[in-house]
Amino acid sequence: MQFPDYRPRRLRQTGAFRRMIRETTLKTDDLIMPFFAIGGKDVKNPVPSMPGQYQLSVDNLVKAVKQAADLGLPAVIVFGLPDKKDPLGTQAYAKDGIVQKAVRAVKDKCPDMMVITDVCLCQYTDHGHCGIVDKGVIDNDGSLDLLARTALSHAQAGADMVAPSDMMDGRVGMIRETLDENDLAHVPIMSYAAKYCSAYYGPFREAADSSPQFGDRRTYQMDPANAVEAVREASLDVTEGADILMVKPALPYLDVIHRIREEFDLPVAAYNVSGEYAMIKAADQMGWLDGKAVALETLTAIKRAGADMILTYFAMEAAQLLNQ
């Protein structure tokens, strides 16, 4: 029997062979851990749809960030749950807001940990939308100043990077201008450049108490059917001063991650979102698959598609496995 000169199985025979020719290697440095900050003291509220995730008071958040640092994770991203909400989301940019308190506490106790903050209004508005509402319609341009004020307040509290997730047109440019005018030109922007209106966000909305009270977010988040539009969105953010481009969700949009990676020379982030996490956790609990192995395979696939960094609720668990 005539065999071809190249026989791929030759280099799959042992673990050493496979490691030597491995094209994509997942590392702890690739991972960013999200946390949910809430008021009070010694609070650790489980998120039912996200096993292993919690709403944490600032004291417990600091403890969790220390654990993340001990595992070698380079960064965390903080989401806030305010004590009160109103039409303008004023707690989003309050000096004593929950995210601002969390940032100051974390940077005080874990100064070497990179702290990223989510910049949006949906957790803070009583209507649950990512911008302000005027007569039932999202006021894009009227929301920009509030988003910029939010980013500024996070940076002034000590955030190392801000991440606008609202998908309002022009918000990256407004935030960049505001930071620069306030001697914070060194603070980078991780833009949610291609954020889709996805059904995968359900568990997050429970964790962050951010479900819209009317309608949906289809007028500002992207249509899941579109990929070319994602390149246009990212191009706008590059022009406005974004430093990192994010695609969210990750797993159903690997093609979009790859397109953004091929099109732009900025670092690319991907958000392995709550629904992706919840599905794997649920299947693992049912004994239908090996959750740890699937989590690592999923994260590797996201990196293979072109992501330089991955925001994931698996970050701490994955770091433990990678460190082994």
Rank of each mutant, 00 (worst) to 15 (best):
P4T: 07
R7S: 11
R9E: 13
R9K: 15
R10I: 14
Q13D: 12
G15R: 12
A16E: 14
M20A: 15
M20W: 14
T25Y: 07
I32V: 15
P34W: 07
F35Q: 01
G40Y: 08
K41C: 10
V43A: 06
K44I: 00
M50Y: 12
Q55Y: 06
D59A: 07
L61P: 01
K66H: 12
Q67V: 10
A68L: 05
A69Y: 04
A69K: 09
L71S: 04
G72C: 06
L73T: 02
G80W: 01
L81R: 09
K84L: 10
Q91H: 14
P111F: 05
D112G: 07
M113N: 06
V119C: 05
V119Q: 02
C120R: 03
L121T: 01
Y124K: 04
Y124C: 03
Y124I: 00
H127F: 13
H129G: 00
C130P: 01
G131A: 07
I132N: 02
D134P: 01
K135H: 14
K135N: 15
I138G: 00
D139Q: 12
D141C: 09
L146A: 09
A148S: 09
S153D: 11
Q156T: 07
A159C: 11
M161W: 00
R171D: 03
M174E: 12
E177D: 13
L179C: 06
L179F: 09
E181A: 15
D183A: 14
P188D: 02
P188R: 01
M190P: 03
A193P: 05
K195W: 08
K195H: 10
C197V: 09
A199Y: 12
Y201N: 04
A208D: 02
S210R: 03
S211Y: 15
R217D: 03
T219I: 08
M222F: 13
M222H: 07
A225W: 11
R232D: 10
A234L: 08
L236R: 15
L236M: 15
D237S: 09
T239W: 12
E240H: 11
E240P: 04
G241C: 07
G241T: 05
A242G: 08
P249W: 05
A250N: 00
L254Y: 10
V256Q: 02
V256P: 01
I257K: 03
I260S: 02
L266A: 05
P267A: 08
A270Y: 03
N272W: 04
N272R: 01
N272C: 12
V273N: 00
S274Y: 01
E276R: 06
A278P: 05
A278I: 01
M279C: 09
A283K: 00
Q285F: 13
W288L: 15
W288Y: 10
L289M: 13
G291N: 06
K292S: 14
V294A: 11
A295V: 08
T300L: 10
A301S: 14
K303P: 02
A305C: 10
A307S: 08
A307D: 01
M309V: 14
Y313N: 02
F314D: 04
F314A: 05
A318W: 00
A319Q: 03
Q324K: 13
